[in-house]
Amino acid sequence: MTALAIRGLRKSFGGLRVTQGVDLAVAPGERRLIIGPNGAGKTTLFNLIAGDLRADSGSVALFGTEIAGLPARRRAHLGLARTYQIITLFPKDTLLRNVTLSLLGLSGLRWNPFVRLDRQHALIAQARHALGRVGLADMADRPLAETSYGERRRVEIAMALAQSPRVLLLDEPFAGLSIDERRDVAALLAEVPREITIVMIEHDMDVALEFADRISVMHFGAVVVDGTRAEVVADPRTREIYLGE
């Protein structure tokens, strides 16, 4: 069974066809890198997979379950998690509260108006553990607004991992990070167990190529080249897209 199977996915804004018939199949446990020039439709593809946007047509299947028609929140419950290119967190809250919210999102407890959240020790311990996984355990009680950009990126990843997703979408996780921060995040991602399938959009080839099992190249809203690292690098179409030859 494929972890993520996309067929004939299309999306237009007005007359502009941003996604035109994307096909993609990601195997369970795979690390897939998606590259392509700006405007190739990579983030739109993520938005279509995660449900932030509704596709005009086509199918998205998560471990065999068709999800293209489901609202984004249902997809989260089916095991899809994502991070955003522009970090989207809760700046007024502490790191711990940020991760707790992530855990709460999949817990039936989120509808409970009768108990105190800060007494939910199991949940909070789980959140602390998730922060520990990204090396932020000792900063758990600091407000997010007081953290650095690299730390926020790690909080975002902690939030995604805390949900124990089956498929994790990472939208440019290295963007805006310093060299040291990149190394930290790369090490962190390398430790993610293979039960979690990862699809990543990234421009930083140095870090990303190392990480990827397979690479898909997107151009003008479609997947143009698809294969192992060596295949994609050797493919003349890749050079054409990147070097304009």
Partner: peptide
């Protein structure tokens, strides 16, 4: 007081600050 400090209260505040993120986290905003 119980309400705003409950998990539901936290969910509500989350929808105030980042509705889109809350949806992606599995909440019915």
């Amino acid at each position: 007081r119980v309400f705003v400090e409950s998990p539901f209260g936290a969910s509500l505040r989350g929808t105030r600050d980042q509705p889109r993120r809350m949806t992606a986290l599995g909440y019915n905003v």
